[in-house]
């Protein structure tokens, strides 16, 4: 009986320890998620009138909204443009600084430094490069006798310019995970392959790259999340323009909620983002973490 009560007391004590986190998570994660789902079924009430239930009408609007499709397409292009490139560059960087290299410390620092900057600061700096008249890129092109490019103002170039900046910002962060993984590869493997005369190229593709696969998947998940979550640079570089050419989903949510004051439509777009994140989370938990034990 005494043991029973002490077990009960531990349960209670544990629940109390959990309470602050539970309250905060409920307030700022679960409640808003549910409220987002519910709000996407309403039209906003104007002038203090209650919101009107409209079922799936917002989703109907979403499907017919050409801007939404443009933004979704942009986000897909943005993900496809940033993720493989930054992963490839990150891997290259890691291989470089894992090898014997003069000035390795400096090189590693140079690769990693953009990670530590706020996206806003990075965007400010790249603005000096991209600006049409006085920007460095066009000055350099001008010096070569070439006509300038409107890096952020030309709808066919702007998204690429944003992608390039993002790759610069992200690659160094992914590098450190590859570097750690490379350092955990037993040197005996390299020694053995050297004895057999394996070329470095085939050693990389047959041994190193497969051994790095868990790191690649981890980095991929992070990169996917960032492609949906980080839109800070748009506030400086393009504001989603020109004509929505660089608009991304979360920025479109921001515009709808805080510029157009259409809260329920913003909620509807948020649901799309939540669905994307749910897919990413499912992939991570169901496939990647099958061997990880959370017990």
């Amino acid at each position: 009986m005494a043991a029973m009560t002490s077990y009960r007391r531990m349960q209670l004590y544990g629940a109390l320890l959990l309470l602050p986190a539970a309250v905060l998570l409920a307030t700022f994660a679960y409640l808003p998620t549910i409220a987002t789902l519910i709000n996407s079924l309403f039209l906003p009430g104007f002038r203090g009138e209650p919101a009107e239930f409209v079922g799936l009408e917002n989703y109907q609007l979403l499907i017919e909204d050409t801007t939404f499709w443009r933004v979704a397409r942009n986000n897909l292009i943005y993900a496809l443009g940033t993720i493989p490139t930054s992963i490839a560059i990150a891997l290259g960087m890691a291989l470089f600084v894992n090898a014997r290299l003069p000035g390795r410390g400096f090189v590693r620092m140079a690769y990693f430094t953009p990670t530590i900057l706020p996206m806003i600061a990075a965007a400010n700096i790249w603005m000096f490069f991209y600006a049409p008249q006085i920007g460095l890129f066009n000055k350099l092109l001008g010096a070569l006798g070439l006509s300038g490019v409107n890096w952020l103002g030309d709808p066919s170039v702007a998204l690429t310019s944003v992608i390039v900046m993002t790759v610069w910002k992200e690659a160094g962060f992914f590098m450190i995970f590859y570097l750690a993984a490379l350092q955990s590869i037993p040197p005996e493997l390299k020694e053995a392959s050297d004895l057999e005369g394996t070329s470095r190229w085939s050693f990389f593709w047959r041994v190193t790259f497969p051994l790095l696969m868990p790191t690649t998947l981890f980095v991929l998940i992070n990169a996917l999340i960032n492609a949906v979550r980080v839109v800070d640079h748009l506030f400086i570089l393009t504001k989603g323009g020109p004509n929505n050419a660089t608009n991304l989903l979360l920025y479109y949510v921001y515009e709808n909620a805080f510029s157009f004051f259409d809260r329920t439509y913003a909620a509807t777009i948020t649901v799309v983002i939540l669905l994307v994140l749910a897919v990413v989370a499912t992939v991570k938990f169901a496939i990647l973490d099958r061997r990880t034990h959370y017990q």
Binding site: L18, A21, L25, T27, F28, A29, Y30, L31, P32, T33, A35, T36, N39, I225, V228, R229, L250, V253, Y254, A257, R263, A266, A267, T270, I273, L274, L277, A278, V280, A281, F285, Y294, Q295
Partner: peptide
């Protein structure tokens, strides 16, 4: 274990994704 999985959801659903509702709250 279920509670812990619920907590882990927040690894994916960040406060900035829910700006609209979090602003209201």
């Amino acid at each position: 274990d279920i509670l812990f999985m619920l907590v882990l959801i927040q690894l994916f659903v960040f406060p900035e994704v829910l700006i609209v509702e979090n602003y209201r709250i």
